[in-house]
């Protein structure tokens, strides 16, 4: 475990905590895309199936449980908690997210490292995670007033992806056999999707203004 990887995981954890704080404490999910959250729940459910078959470390298992538990509870909160559900921007959150799932599944069936059930699902989860943020980014663009917590949530998620790229660069140079093209390319695509958001986030921070994305 290197410092970039740990920082990436902690940033990911922080993003989830920020979102849970908003939903649990403020009882609001305004500006949060349920579509993206559903995709993340699928991502973690398909990637972490190896919880039953392989053991890496206590850290690894605990973090997997945290991400599984938090992603599913966020979805359930947004769908079934009366107060939280009322704050959901249903009319704005219209991205056809199921249309992302099938192409990712087909791609995983075609391009993978090993053709086994767990491996194909694991690869599918990488492809799906790469595009899972799209409904959220579209919703942000449609939302006039992006509150601080929602902005921070997306900023932290993007930061987590960026740190993972540094982690791969570090591992490539320190672990001679560490070459994983599928992970790298889907991770890179995922990080690039945040580029636009990062630009406007840094602008609003620099000018000390409220975050607003151009339509």
């Amino acid at each position: 475990m290197n410092i970039f990887r740990l920082a990436g995981d902690m940033t990911h954890l922080a993003s989830v905590l920020v979102l849970l704080l908003k939903i649990h404490t403020i009882k609001s999910c305004a500006g949060v895309s349920l579509k993206t959250q559903e995709l993340y729940a699928i991502v973690f459910a398909t990637r972490y199936l190896d919880i039953f078959t392989s053991f890496y470390s206590i850290y690894n298992t605990l973090m997997k449980l945290v991400f599984l538990g938090s992603s599913f509870s966020i979805v359930l909160y947004m769908k079934y908690h009366k107060t939280v559900h009322r704050s959901y921007d249903r009319e704005q959150d219209t991205f056809r997210h199921w249309f992302l799932v099938l192409p990712c599944l087909l791609l995983a069936l075609l391009i993978h490292e090993k053709f086994t059930f767990l491996e194909v699902l694991w690869t599918f989860s990488l492809y799906l995670e790469a595009v899972a943020i799209l409904p959220q980014l579209v919703l942000l663009q449609r939302t006039r007033n992006i509150d601080n917590l929602t902005g921070q949530y997306v900023f932290l998620l993007g930061g987590y992806r960026g740190l993972y790229i540094l982690n791969w660069i570090y591992r490539y140079f320190t672990e001679p056999h560490f070459v994983h093209w599928i992970t790298w390319i889907s991770g890179l695509v995922q990080t690039l999707l945040y580029a636009d958001f990062f630009f406007y986030y840094s602008q609003s921070w620099k000018n000390n203004k409220k975050l607003q994305l151009p339509a």
């Binding site: 990911h12 392989s54 991400f67 993972y164 056999h177």
Partner: peptide, 10 residues
């Protein structure tokens, strides 16, 4: 080397 080294990532 472990084939699944990347799987220790989250």
């Amino acid at each position: 080397p472990n084939d699944d080294d990347v799987k220790d990532e989250l």
